[in-house]
Simulated scan of single mutants.
Amino acid sequence: MTGSAEGSGASGALDGAVIAVAGAAGPAGRAALLRLAEAGATVVGADADPERLVEAVDAARYAHGGATVTGDTVDLLDLGATREWADKTEKEFGRIDGLVHLVGGWRGSSSFPETDLSHWALLERLLVRTVQHTTLAFHDPLLRSDRGRYVLVSAAGASKPTAGNAAYSAAKAAAEAWTLALGDAFRKAGGDDGPKAAASVLVIKALVHDAMRAERPNAKFAGFTDVTELAEQVAGVWDRPAQEVNGQRLWLTPAP
């Protein structure tokens, strides 16, 4: 990892923690469920696709016998529903120690003039609105935790956008700014003692997983981060003090 986040190993910092994962049914979400359960956390996944969510939750449960992994079908585009999810989770498990935001999506074009603004309309909802809703819903529970973390996964293109990725890069940049504003709220809440909760952005070039490799066996995927490595780095955020990771971009790829 470029920067300073290291692999977490068997992360004692997560033992007994309650971690919510938004976008749990995708490849990155599945890897996160597995890694967080392995580290001893109670994991509560959310996704809009109930069938894929059940498959992801069952896979994590079977991989780590005895782990508590649950799933809730949640429309994260609905602020009220997102707040209900946060409230339900805290009431059921007594605490919330983290929210990992893995809601993704991509649209691009072959050139800047060919950008389709419908792509922005979609990506703003997936990549920005869901961040707004989860940060607002989980702000208070994370402050009540002794190890609260909000983790966003972003892309290097937010800092160095390319012509064909204007909508995607702009949405990622907006999501980063919103998350860093949450970090400032945590900093202010901590006062002279410093933040006890943290909001962090993990920055990648792009993600790769086994199905992508199977579909394109000759592709190199140079500089891509495997979803299992991303999950390892997500877990590692809890190994570091809140003051060290709050309001920080943690690079898993060289910074532009």
Rank of each mutant, 00 (worst) to 15 (best):
G3M: 05
A5Y: 12
G7W: 10
S8M: 07
G9W: 08
A10D: 15
G12M: 08
A13G: 09
A13D: 11
A22V: 12
G23W: 05
A25P: 02
G26W: 02
A28R: 07
G29I: 06
A32D: 13
L36I: 11
A39L: 08
A39M: 10
A39H: 08
G40I: 05
G40M: 07
G40S: 09
A41P: 00
T42W: 10
V43N: 07
D49H: 11
E51L: 09
E51Y: 06
E51S: 12
R52K: 13
E55C: 02
E55F: 03
A59S: 08
A59H: 01
Y62A: 08
A67Y: 02
T68G: 04
V69H: 07
T70P: 01
G71V: 10
V74H: 02
V74S: 00
V74Q: 03
D78K: 10
A81M: 10
W85Y: 15
A86Q: 03
A86G: 00
D87T: 15
E90S: 11
K91M: 14
E92A: 15
D97K: 03
L99T: 09
H101C: 14
L102C: 11
L102Y: 08
V103K: 06
V103R: 07
G105F: 09
G108D: 15
S109D: 07
S111Y: 06
T115Y: 15
W120Q: 05
W120C: 05
L123N: 00
E124T: 13
E124L: 14
R125F: 14
L126C: 09
V128Y: 10
L136R: 14
L136P: 01
F138K: 01
L142A: 04
L142F: 01
L142D: 03
R144M: 09
R144F: 11
R144L: 11
R149N: 10
L152C: 01
L152E: 04
S154L: 07
S154H: 02
A155L: 08
A158N: 07
K160S: 13
G164F: 02
A167W: 05
Y168P: 00
A171T: 02
E176W: 02
E176N: 06
A177C: 11
W178M: 08
L180P: 03
G183K: 01
A189V: 12
D193S: 12
P195A: 00
A199S: 01
S200K: 02
V203G: 01
H209L: 05
A211R: 11
P217S: 08
A222T: 14
F224I: 07
D226L: 00
L230W: 00
V234Q: 10
G236V: 07
G236K: 06
L250H: 01
L252F: 14
L252K: 06
A255W: 06
